[in-house]
Amino acid sequence: MDVNMTYATQEMWTWWLAIYLYFGGLGAATLAVTFLTDMYLKPNRALVIWGAGAGVILLALGSLMLFGHLLDKTAVLTILNPLALFNQSSAWIAWGTQFIIWMMIWGVLYALPYVRETEFPRQVPGIRELIDKPFVIGTATLVQRFHRSVGWLAVINGVGVAVYTGLLLQSFPAVALWHNPAVPLLFTVSAFSTAMAFLLVLMYTILHDQADEHVRVLYERIDLVLIAAELVILFSLYQYLKNGSESGVRSMELLWNDYGWLIGFIGFGLIVPFLLELKGVMRGWASRVPILTAAVLVLAGGYLLRHYFMYAGVYAYPW
């Protein structure tokens, strides 16, 4: 049928959804990385508390973004029920909600024994009384017995959240930029890259412990690989978009003609941190400033990726 196409971007999910996706990926990946570090690399109480805290707070803030934009907030109760998954197993938001809830629950439980051993929470009114309650002590003791199992439950749900942020966008078939297998990969890799960057900032500033040097070096190396992977995925995505459907071509034009994407995200969010971290891994830096700079740039780039992705999705309407 002869139609005259109209190409349009959307105004339904904008910057606030980008924040939801960003905080979701960053918080969940941070929690997963810190718990895995604690379980298999080096027991690290401070890192776990920061990881669990970041996971819970960032996910709560991100979820608030989505919640604040719901038309009927009371209806959200439907998807808080885990049984909702049986009714709507095809909907990634239903999966994501459960991943978020259970990641928070297992994350807090995993961190609980460490929180009870830490001085700072005991100085906070409310928390001090709470963590000394008999059922909290009993729970912490129980968690301690099954610490690794609880950790894995948190990690699995955390990875689920990180992957979900990409799968959510991939489930919209009308937009070529979103509806392709590169998106969940890109968002997952980006989530873990920003988590590494977040932890590097943390470990070079607040948690500056010399004994954690090998952990920091490992995070830098992993981040380097993740940024490289992100660049490869972006290159593949570019190739896919430039010779695909008109929706894809227009998205490509929107993105690659925008300095915010090209210079902001790809330049300063990926290439510059890659070079800084590469130099750090190969020859080392005399100061922590270059790696801190790289980490901050990666964190900013993580948001820019999601921001531009939301605005550059092009619908092709046949009218």
């Binding site: 339904m12 999910w13 959200v76 909907a91 309407y317």
Partner: peptide, 21 residues
């Protein structure tokens, strides 16, 4: 009564047929 108005349907629809009330 079940709809919470997240807008995912509007994002998924290729025909621009979902509208927020």
């Amino acid at each position: 009564d079940l709809c919470m108005g997240c807008g995912a349907c509007a994002m998924a629809c290729p025909y621009h047929a979902r509208i927020p009330v």
